[in-house]
């Protein structure tokens, strides 16, 4: 089941993503991330339940990251699955994105 939902986690806008992210719905993910960024100064995208991600999903994450840099807000990928990590490595973005293992770390606790 593919989904992305945002919740408030002690001040962090936490976007939880599930399933296979591809071009058929990556625009939904993009909108969810940008909406979360518009509503909070710290956004974490939990990718632990993502079983596949293509370049359109990566593009949605890059847009979020770029938006965070221009608005000087906090943005992190949380616990990316092996499937996501391998695509990030392929795109050489694993050392570009802030990657943390928990929502607490994304908040900077």
């Amino acid at each position: 089941m593919n989904s992305c939902k945002t919740e408030d986690a002690d001040g962090l806008r936490l976007v939880r993503v599930t399933g296979e992210v591809d071009m058929s719905w990556s625009q939904d993910l993009r909108k969810e991330i940008l909406d979360a960024m518009a509503k909070g100064s710290a956004v974490g995208v939990d990718l632990s339940a993502v079983t596949y991600m293509d370049s359109s999903g990566i593009a949605a994450l890059v847009e979020g990251f770029q938006q965070s840099r221009s608005s000087k807000s906090r943005f992190a990928l949380i616990a990316p699955s092996d499937a996501v990590r391998s695509v990030l490595e392929l795109a050489r973005l694993d050392r570009v994105f802030p990657i943390v293992e928990s929502a607490a770390a994304a908040r900077g606790d």
Partner: peptide, 17 residues
Amino acid sequence: DLDECRPGGLGINFIDA
């Protein structure tokens, strides 16, 4: 060029790699 951090255009890189 993968040194450019920008959205899009990665598909051919994935095929090529």
